[in-house]
């Protein structure tokens, strides 16, 4: 077990491992995506209140879930960075920021497009929407802070602290629809009793959520490769690899 962990903590091993595993991840991702999209667009029946416009849920909700999930992964990495200073945790944290911002943007934009026909407005200053917008600013802020500090050892510490402070926003996003009277509808899937959604609608949604998880892993690994090369640029394995490939 420790030998296994030690191997993954070693950058050259991890870099090669990423290259080996990526094609399989792409296959799984596209498989899930095709199946999920088929279910989302064809087999799922139209909603009795919202008609076919509800199909936006199949990108909106997985993206919104992932926007919070990615942030929690970053927060866990931040704890590891501050306590143990593990290099891999630093790389994971920084590599997650871009994809987290992408998921948050998807959730906000598709939500806005969905809001227009259903609520009659592109945007309202509702608790759920506002807290999700703050999450987007947090992602942008983390990226800006990391790039603004020249010494990356100090930068990663500052970023970790910012990420941990921002964690307070996550429960606010999740419970905003229950704490305040919002225009945004309440949860339909993560309720403690039975989810109030038909099974034919629910299955494609869950498939899409898993597909988005795979997209996160793929995107994370692509960014992690870049981060590994930058942070290991003085080592001989990076030198040999770069020279060999040119």
């Amino acid at each position: 077990m420790f030998k296994f962990l030690h191997k993954f903590g070693s950058p050259p091993y991890f870099y090669n491992f990423i290259n080996k595993i990526l094609p399989y991840l792409y296959i799984i991702f596209f498989g899930l995506l095709l199946y999920g999209m088929y279910g989302a667009l064809i087999t799922a029946p139209a909603d009795y209140q919202q008609g076919n416009s509800f199909r936006i849920i199949y990108v909106h909700v997985p993206a919104a879930w992932m926007s919070m999930f990615v942030y929690m992964v970053m927060a866990s990495c931040a704890v590891v960075v501050l306590i143990w200073r593990m290099k891999m945790a630093q790389i994971m944290l920084i590599s997650s920021v871009a994809v987290g911002a992408i998921f948050t943007t998807i959730a906000l934009v598709t939500g806005s497009i969905w809001g227009k026909p259903m609520w009659g407005a592109w945007w309202v200053w509702d608790a759920r929407l506002t807290s999700e917008l703050i999450l987007l600013f947090l992602y942008i802020g983390v990226l800006a802070l990391y790039n603004a500090i020249e010494d990356k050892k100090i930068a990663i510490k500052a970023v970790s602290i910012l990420v941990l402070v921002g964690v307070v926003n996550i429960p606010i996003i999740h419970y905003s629809v229950e704490w305040w009277n919002t225009l945004h509808q309440g949860p339909t899937v993560t309720k403690f009793d039975k989810p109030s959604i038909h099974i034919d609608m629910l299955i494609p949604l869950l498939v899409m959520a898993v597909a988005f998880k795979f997209y996160y892993i793929i995107n994370l690994l692509h960014n992690a490769k870049n981060q590994i090369l930058i942070s290991e640029s003085t080592t001989s394995w990076v030198k040999d690899m770069v020279k060999k490939q040119s």
């Binding site: 008609g51 076919n52 992408i102 998807i106 497009i113």
Partner: peptide, 29 residues
């Protein structure tokens, strides 16, 4: 899509465009 075509298709298009850009950008980098 029962009159909601523009909303539904633009949502999916924007989402996938962002996701594709999210991969192309680090690969180029």
């Amino acid at each position: 899509m029962g009159g909601y075509g523009a909303y539904v298709w633009s949502s999916f298009a924007i989402s996938f465009a962002l996701m594709i850009w999210g991969i192309i950008s680090p690969v180029r980098n």
